[in-house]
């Protein structure tokens, strides 16, 4: 079932269009940086963007930092929101279920397919950014870590892979929320927008001091912790918490999706 869902994802034109769009902004940014040589002011702009002026091989990270706050979660919400509601809307859901496919397994397969999509998207963005960055911005033998120590290219490569993994896992929460909403409505758009509303609320609450007690539970709380992979030594605290939090989101929202979907009347 998981294989079938992966095939479906890969054979869908929308998957590739989305990935193409995700690449557009970082590439544009790289071109602008190469033309103007103007980095963002400290404390503003995405992480690593000022560092790539010195070393183009760091551009995959800057590219990920560019798509992480908005574009990637939007893509995830759209894909995950479509996963069950889209099948319901096209009518294929009833045929899957009388095939029969166990409803629980369908949910898990859908979530796995969404995560596979995220991984694919992130890897493609990083790869494209590496090529674009090295060609347009040049490279250096050694890079500086965020903490001011020296990183070898091998260390940068390993940490970039870790960052890709972490960012992929960071999207689990959004995916699970969108999947739950996707089982509640037959409209993929409504599910995606619902998940986005949740994310926007989370980002807003993160800036609010009054919401401090809530903050450790917000899905976007630890997203930027991928930067911690480039401190020296690596600062694991927030990364571990981030992964744990995403796991909790998956358990809770996939659980709710399961409770809702397995006893739901399929009338689409």
């Amino acid at each position: 079932m998981i294989r079938t869902e992966l095939v479906k994802t890969l054979r869908r034109p929308r998957t590739w269009v989305t990935i193409l769009l995700l690449n557009a902004l970082p590439t544009l940014v790289a071109v602008l940086l190469a033309l103007t040589d103007l980095g963002p002011r400290p404390g503003s702009g995405p992480a690593f963007l000022s560092a790539v002026l010195a070393d183009g091989t760091l551009f995959p990270l800057a590219a990920l930092a560019i798509i992480l706050p908005l574009f990637l979660p939007v893509a995830v919400a759209v894909v995950a929101g479509d996963s069950v509601a889209g099948e319901a809307q096209q009518g294929t859901l009833r045929y899957l279920l009388v095939r029969p496919v166990s409803r629980t397994r369908l949910l898990v397969a859908k979530l796995v397919a969404v995560i596979a999509f995220v991984l694919l998207a992130v890897v493609v963005v990083a790869a494209v950014a590496y090529v674009v960055g090295s060609v347009l911005l040049g490279d250096q033998a050694l890079a500086a870590s965020v903490s001011g120590t020296v990183l070898t290219p091998a260390q940068v490569a390993v940490r970039t892979l870790l960052a890709i993994g972490y960012i992929t896992l960071s999207m689990l929460g959004v995916a699970a929320i969108a999947l739950l909403l996707s089982t509640m409505t037959d409209s993929p758009l409504a599910a995606a927008l619902g998940a986005l509303a949740f994310l926007i609320a989370s980002s807003l609450l993160l800036t609010l001091d009054a919401a401090q007690t809530l903050q450790p539970y917000l899905p976007t709380r630890y997203w930027l912790a991928f930067v911690d992979l480039f401190r020296d030594p690596i600062f694991w605290r927030d990364i571990v918490r981030g992964i744990g939090l995403q796991a909790v989101y998956v358990v809770v929202f996939l659980g709710a999706a399961w409770a809702n979907f397995t006893t739901k009347d399929i009338t689409s």
């Binding site: 400290p42 404390g43 992480a47 000022s50 560092a51 500086a144 965020v146 903490s147």
Partner: peptide, 20 residues
Amino acid sequence: ATGETGVFHRSGASVLWNYE
């Protein structure tokens, strides 16, 4: 969130590092 400032202190002097 996007960088780091560090103080490395040794023997009566400090290096102030600012990543961004």
